[in-house]
Amino acid sequence: MNDKKHLMVSAIKDGTVIDHIPARNLFKVISILGLNKIENQITFGTNLESKKLGKKAIIKIANLFFPEEDINKIALVAPDAKLNIIRDYAVVEKKVVQVPDEIVGIVKCFNPQCITNHEKITTRFTVIQKKEVALKCHYCEKITDQEHIEIL
């Protein structure tokens, strides 16, 4: 099984592997982490079989290590994501993501009548529920729930 996985997505010497991303949210994760704007070598695989997620995606980024607060931002779209920190082909650390208490930017308020959808304003939410994520807009005070989360 392990060998098979390695065939699908090639190994990296140093960097970060993000596994257990729901396949449908792969591009959201890429966009949240700004991976589309960097020069590092990145490999990803998607629609891989996963018992837990159905179809999952995996991203390997060479020579990049994320600060905790950056990586926690993906918890909104990939709550089960697991990170492996790789040094010299070996996993030296494993991390899980945690939904932060506050979300600044990233998410669009679902309320069409919210000022943030009419003027150039950085969105801000308090996370009022972490399991099934629910976000309370700092501006309109409405709650955006998991199924309405839209990444900016």
Partner: peptide, 10 residues
Amino acid sequence: RHPLEGSARF
């Protein structure tokens, strides 16, 4: 007074 929600906070 403003028709959009959150306008006063902003």
